[in-house]
């Protein structure tokens, strides 16, 4: 079943068109990779899907489980199962990670008409997940991402993903700034979440990440459009020949 359908999407930022008619369909259980040079609009696409303000959709639509995503507030999208692991997770001083996780999880549950998770159940779950991601407990007592290394910030995103159990996970440049060990831990965390009901969209500049998270479908993005889609061998091809051929195509 189609989980996410992006149809002929045109998006402007500050009067400038960034996405020029982008089409993308992601089905349940699939892992998609979106590759493309810097500035091709990958983060813009992820932000528009998550509902970040400042983007003007001038044409096209985005359906999530058949519903019009663009009509929903960001928090509604989250509660319905859209999760964006940010390229640059923000630091929130004064809000402990633990408090943030619990507040967010319960807000999502409330929006879905589910009861709040009891504190012991919640703590147990956080402990399990953070252990598997190699996140020390005292990190959870600190302000969200405050003083975290690049790798810790990315792992914190994966931690949230594991906790919130979204049906669509978009990972924006999860590999940027990570050394190989940190990358492996984060990728293992992501792979552990792979399930027949859940889809992943892995945005990356480099092929390297796709050695750890193996995609079913690879899309090449250039200048605000998907210019080519194919199997995982496309990633390898890109690694060898670079993006230049597609820049001209776009």
């Amino acid at each position: 079943m189609a989980l996410l359908e992006v149809k002929d999407l045109k998006v402007r930022v500050e009067e400038r068109e960034i996405l020029h008619g982008l089409t993308l369909t992601v089905n349940e259980g699939e892992i998609h990779a979106i590759m493309g040079p810097n500035g091709s609009g990958k983060s813009t696409l992820s932000h528009v899907i998550a509902g970040k303000p400042g983007y003007e959709v001038t044409d096209g639509q985005i359906l999530f489980k058949g519903e019009d995503l663009l009509e929903m507030a960001p928090e509604e999208r989250a509660a319905k199962g859209v999760f964006l692991a940010f390229q640059y997770p923000v630091e929130i001083p004064g809000v402990t990670t633990m408090n943030f996780l619990r507040t967010a999880l319960n807000a999502q549950r409330k929006a879905r008409g589910e009861s709040e998770l009891m504190v012991p159940d919640f703590l147990k779950k956080v402990r399990e997940v953070s252990k598997s991601l190699n996140i020390p407990q005292d990190m959870l007592k600190r302000g969200v991402n405050v003083g975290f290394s690049g790798g810790e910030k990315k792992r914190n995103e994966v931690l949230q993903m594991a906790l919130f159990e979204p049906s669509l996970c978009i990972l924006d440049e999860m590999d940027s700034g990570l050394d190989i060990d940190a990358l492996r831990i984060a990728a293992d965390g992501v792979n552990a979440l792979h399930s027949p009901k859940r889809a992943m969209v892995v945005i990356t500049h480099y092929q390297r990440l796709l050695n750890y998270i193996v995609p079913d479908i690879v899309h090449v993005m250039s200048k605000g459009r998907v210019v080519k889609s194919g199997g995982k061998e496309l990633a390898q091809e890109l690694e060898e020949s670079g993006y230049a051929q597609f820049e001209d195509a776009a």
Partner: peptide, 22 residues
């Protein structure tokens, strides 16, 4: 910061409240 919290499911007022408390 507000958007980050909203993207994690917090409604506007609750996201504000968390940041105000901090």
């Amino acid at each position: 910061l507000l958007f980050y919290l909203k993207a994690r499911g917090l409604p506007e007022k609750q996201a504000q409240a968390l940041l105000i408390q901090a």
